[in-house]
Design a protein around this nucleic acid. Structure first.
Ligand code: FES
Ligand code: FES
Lengths: 153, 153
DNA sequence: ATATATTAAGACCTTTTTATCTTTTATATA
DNA sequence: TATATAAAAGATAAAAAGGTCTTAATATAT
């Protein structure tokens, strides 16, 4: 019931592409990595894999970068997770039992299951573009920078 | 928003102690490790730490082992998590933002938050003994062995 | 007292995950 | 066609998590 850091980065940066990139406004790894505050060589690797998985697209050279085609836009967040982590990890039992399943429920299964269904639904029922539009209109964040408005010495 | 394997083991085995051990029925690491199907040297380490944290108790020597005192029984599951993982990990943003917080919500924050509150409540509002009694009466499992009733060649 | 069973302590190893670096390849455009 | 730019590929490194092993300490029962 948990995402790797890798798939978190992949989700956030794909949503960033959905919002900011297009076929004639491709964006480089470096820019994205800075925007959503993730390590850029690591993100580059993830993007290679997402391109192979046909979740996102890329072109090399000047003005090259990453973007989403119409087809890419039809993918959903669960496709990203599947591409990076596979589906096992997110389906695991919250307490680590070998199966997560209502017939042999762990002590928190019936609290976890509704949440799991609801978040998997969220990740499956809208495509990337719809998901992105929703989060933009609702003002959801893909990064939090400058939390540090704190007392410095 | 996730537990390490270590704290999962710790939770399951402490609940096992609550159910099966007592001051005059102490249980060895080896027996517990086999019962809930976790690696025993690893569990031994975790138990050392839980003893230091006064979550569980132990005595050495023949008929020694681990058990819960009255005081131990008053601890809750969140105390176990805090002792092994600290509290940061379970409070992290589901998508990895640097803060999980309603004023800067990630795209799934408002799905995650109610679940987080509910599971943290579950882990905090009953002590170990009460929690254990509840899961026993409801038939919740601490392990699933022998899932393999499958077709073998 | 002695033998034995069991935890405590700490060093060590392995695997997985995360992150970086270097070289090659493709592409746009000057 | 040369040059610059950006991704692809793949080797490598660092860190974290998970797991094991050996020796020491200690409590119990005989
Ligand atoms: S979450 Fe534990 S069995 Fe489903
Ligand atoms: S879960 Fe992402 S901000 Fe709360």
């Amino acid at each position: 019931m948990m995402l790797s850091r890798a798939s978190k980065y992949a989700i956030l940066s794909t949503l960033y592409l959905a919002e900011h990139a297009s076929e004639n406004r491709k964006i480089s790894v470096k820019v994205i990595a800075e925007s959503i505050d993730v390590p850029s060589p690591f993100l580059a690797k993830l993007f290679q894999q997402l391109v192979k998985g046909k979740i996102i697209s890329s072109t090399k050279g000047p003005n090259g970068g990453f973007y989403l085609t119409k087809k890419n836009q039809k993918k959903n967040v669960l496709d990203i997770i599947e591409n990076i982590d596979g589906l096992n990890r997110i389906n695991e039992c919250f307490l680590g039992l070998s199966e997560c399943d209502g017939t042999n429920p762990c002590p928190v299964h019936f609290i976890v299951e509704p949440f799991k269904n609801s978040i998997l639904g969220k990740f499956r029922d809208k495509n990337i573009m719809e998901f992105s539009q929703e989060i933009v209109s609702k003002g959801r964040k893909l990064t939090i920078k400058d939390i540090s408005t704190e007392i410095n010495s």
